[in-house]
Design a protein around this nucleic acid. Structure first.
Lengths: 64, 64
DNA sequence: CCTTTATGTCAATGTCACTTGACTTTTTCA
DNA sequence: TGAAAAAGTCAAGTGACATTGACATAAAGG
């Protein structure tokens, strides 16, 4: 499942570590989700949406 | 994470088995998600939203 | 340069999502 | 009432999500 995390994070000038702290997950988890190694859990997807002030649908793409 | 699955399913007159087939998961998974024993994965949450023609945010509630 | 910061990735571990199969209880309806 | 369908739940297994700690490489800035 593709996502726009890397772009959104870069737009805000945040490092993976910065985002990880805002989400209360490890830096490795952020990296794994960004690089598409796995998808976040639903609760984490909601926290991600909240951090960026967007909906889950805006960040995570159905295709592939 | 609370959800409106049971209500939405009942509105359509579907059994848990019916919904499970549409989602391509087991009946036990549908039951577990409905009764709040665990949350669906993000890909499954998208399929659930698709089946009901709604967004994830419309079906799964942030609170609790 | 050279040190710091950022990123990518690995291994090992633990927990959660999801499975099949079985069983009990509740609901429906002929 | 009584059989069938639906719902709830348990156990055991598998794979995915997420962790810490470590290491390699790349990028940035002094």
């Amino acid at each position: 499942m593709n996502n726009r995390l890397k772009i959104l994070r870069a737009e805000r000038g945040w490092s993976q570590q910065d985002l990880a702290e805002r989400l209360e997950v490890s830096r490795q988890s952020v990296n794994a989700i960004e690089t598409g190694r796995y998808d976040p859990s639903l609760p984490l997807a909601f926290r991600i949406a909240d951090v960026f002030g967007m909906t889950i649908e805006d960040i995570f793409l159905r295709g592939e």
